[in-house]
């Protein structure tokens, strides 16, 4: 037990003894995690935004004006049974006329004497089928049904969305990966500097007969503590920025960052792990 407490105590004291090098390390970890934290939220919300745009994608199916109610019911049942379809919404000619009035401000009966609007369905697809290939194949199947007059969807919108989503996804992933890598390199190097500043302690411990494990543990504890403190600072900073953004900048920008408590826990765990792994890697070099 004496050794256990000695190592724990050494780890904590090391944080104080390392002075500026230790403080520098904590700041570097905090900055790295702030970058990664903001990078994560920005990536998540960008992807969410793109997915939201995609979710608004619908397919309109216009039936022949002459379709009987039985044919319409059968077609509705067919749509309901399709695995690709998430929601089916039927628009009767009467409802279409109401919708027309709402959208164009004129009654269709004032323009024409009869209602030319056909019965139609608006379907939304399940997320995995909201792509050009699936939509084209669904549209072609439905177009071939005798009751169907026309299938309409925003093909150009889908083409553009697919093109830009790929660019957005790659950019977001690349930026996030770069930030994560940067944080690992910065953290590892700053911890290495902290340890390098106390190589004298390592060589003395080895000279008096310390095993590698004995030398290693105080530095690992110290590195983990640096990571923990750095990540707490990063969490506080990110919380402060989001609080300011959500409470004082709502009139300027239409964006609300919603971040759960789990996000901050994630930052603290990542920071502590970064410190632990960074110090473990850094000390290895000095034990050879």
């Amino acid at each position: 037990m004496t050794v256990f407490w000695f190592l724990i105590r050494e780890g904590f004291k090391g944080l104080i003894r390392s002075k500026y090098a230790g403080a520098f390390s904590v700041i570097i970890i905090a900055i790295s995690l702030i970058l990664v934290g903001f990078g994560y939220v920005a990536s998540r919300d960008t992807l969410f935004l793109v997915e939201n745009i995609r979710a608004q994608f619908d397919v309109d199916i216009f039936l022949h004006k002459t379709a009987s109610s039985e044919e319409i019911d059968n077609f509705a049942a067919l749509l309901d049974s399709m695995t690709e379809v998430r929601n089916v919404h039927y628009i009767s000619p009467e409802n279409a006329a109401v919708k027309f009035k709402k959208e164009f401000g004129e009654d269709i009966f004032d323009i024409l004497d009869y209602n030319p609007l056909p019965p139609s369905f608006t379907i939304s697809l399940k997320p995995i089928y909201r792509n050009l290939v699936s939509v084209e194949s669904i549209a072609s199947i439905l177009s071939n049904k005798p009751v169907v007059d026309e299938v309409k969807y925003r093909k150009q919108f889908l083409i553009l969305l697919e093109k830009y989503q790929r660019i957005v996804l790659i950019t977001v992933m690349a930026v996030f990966a770069f930030l994560a890598l940067l944080s690992i390199i910065l953290t590892s190097n700053s911890i290495k500097m902290t340890i390098f500043a106390r190589r004298e302690l390592i060589s003395t411990m080895k000279l008096v007969g310390a095993t590698n494990n004995f030398v290693r543990w105080p530095f690992i504890i110290e590195g983990t503590l640096q990571g923990f403190i750095g990540s707490c600072l990063a969490s506080l900073f990110i919380y402060g920025i989001f609080y300011f953004l959500n409470n004082y900048l709502q009139t300027v920008i239409e964006y609300k960052a919603i971040v759960s408590f789990r996000f901050y826990i994630g930052i603290v765990i990542s920071g502590s792990l970064l410190g632990l792994i960074g110090s473990r890697r850094a000390i290895r070099k000095f034990l050879k």
């Binding site: 004496t2 050794v3 000695f6 003395t204 411990m205 007969g209 310390a210 004995f214």
Partner: peptide
């Protein structure tokens, strides 16, 4: 320190 490393 010499003795701590030897687990006294």
């Amino acid at each position: 320190l010499s003795l701590y490393v030897s687990h006294y």
